[in-house]
Design a binder for these strands. Structure first.
Lengths: 227, 227
DNA sequence: TTGATATTATTGTCAGACAAAAGGGGAGGC
DNA sequence: GCCTCCCCTTTTGTCTGACAATAATATCAA
């Protein structure tokens, strides 16, 4: 009886769908940073009551995706400084889970790792950006699973949602796809050696390169007056 | 005109007071892990409407302090594994900000550091546990401020709120007050040398010792059947 | 005791209401 | 013309009451 599927029931409360919808709109750019969210308008657009909408807003606010203005909430932006810090934190956290994975993962975890790296490889080659992002998230999920560290997974998810827009923008505007894929394969290779030090180094290196690309891109975005 | 006080206005929305009250109840033990939160009861106890209460619940839920049961929410507990991971993450994050502080702090930041270390020293000597906890939080705030890294401050606050109960329990039941104070002074001393490596090491060491104490204590809590 | 069924309790959502505060805009003063 | 003050509108924060859906519980039958 150990091979029964978890049987996930999809009883998503309405507010969860609302927050998911808003999150999506924020990352895909239809709700750019600084946009004021007016409850009545959103209610009409989404066809829901203010009660449910406001609960969704509280969730997003607690996640840091919205910030309070003088009146109500607005879409939170990411300053270059903030982005830099987010990447620094990601480096620290991903280094940690890589280390833990190297120490604690079993064969099943490694199998999952192979699978997701393969999927990523396919997505990269197809230049399917949405797929790349979601497979990347899956990659971190597998990593944290093998590291037996759901705490980090939670934090990474939160951090990534903050810089998701930046991620997708920089990904489609820079050309480091193959580079990125190679780095990820390097992480997987390091993990297979079971060396905590090598694994950590590979993970940190990957984040640092990604940070470099994304920040260069954002700097260009932040000061278009320099043109 | 640079020395005007910020004049923090206390326009706390009701839901914020509610979530603060519940948080407090959770850390001080009057709402132990596993407790089911029944909306109607809470409304009566707090004297607020369900609307406001539910928004507060969504905030706490997003913070990870509450988890969904089959029906409604319950107070989230912290398993020993989870606690271990939280401490591992704290070590990584506090090491990072210590490094950043050593690199980027100015005289003002160092002055604030001295001040909070002095306050901590007083609190420790007086064995004033609530004061210790709040000064400790302040210590991290100063650290992150000097490190120019509000992102980490946010994450640390979140993590700490999860293990706050554990922190206060283990603090009043173990006897590592003087030890802890010495470690903190060691961090401050390392920061003064401006050496990123020394600072990181001191910060990491402190978290690791705290983890050791807290986890030993929690293990004892988790299996009282072994007696 | 077990199994099926009725009852109750509780959540998720809605609609409508209101005070309070923020914002905007125009009238009047300079 | 520009600034200030006041009024009006908009928007939020909160409350009340309602309802369907469903989980928990009690009730009854076999």
């Amino acid at each position: 009886m150990s091979s029964l599927k978890p049987l996930v029931q999809e009883a998503a409360p309405l507010r969860r769908k609302i927050s998911a919808s808003l999150r999506e709109a924020m990352t895909n750019g239809s709700l750019p940073p600084g946009t004021r969210l007016v409850e009545k308008d959103l209610c009409q657009d989404l066809g829901v009551s203010r009660t449910a909408l406001r609960e969704a807003l509280r969730e997003l606010e607690a996640e840091g995706l919205l910030e309070r203005g003088t009146r109500g909430v607005m879409v939170a932006g990411v300053t270059p400084d903030e982005a830099r810090n987010v990447y620094a934190v990601r480096a620290a956290l991903e280094g940690l889970v890589a280390e833990q994975f190297a120490r604690q993962a079993d064969e099943q975890d490694f199998a999952a790792l192979e699978a997701v790296v393969a999927a990523l490889s396919t997505a990269y080659r197809a230049e399917d950006f949405p797929a790349i992002l979601s497979e990347k998230d899956r990659f971190y999920e597998v990593l944290c699973l093998g590291a037996r560290n759901p705490v980090v997974h939670d934090l990474l998810t939160r951090l990534n949602s903050k810089i998701n827009r930046l991620r997708s923008l920089s990904r489609s505007n820079t050309d480091r796809g193959p580079q990125s894929l190679r780095e990820i394969e390097a992480i997987a290779a390091a993990l297979r050696t079971r060396s905590p030090e090598l694994s950590r180094a590979a993970a940190v290196a990957h984040v640092e390169r990604a940070a470099e690309a994304a920040l260069k891109f954002e700097d260009a975005l932040a000061k278009p007056d320099a043109a």
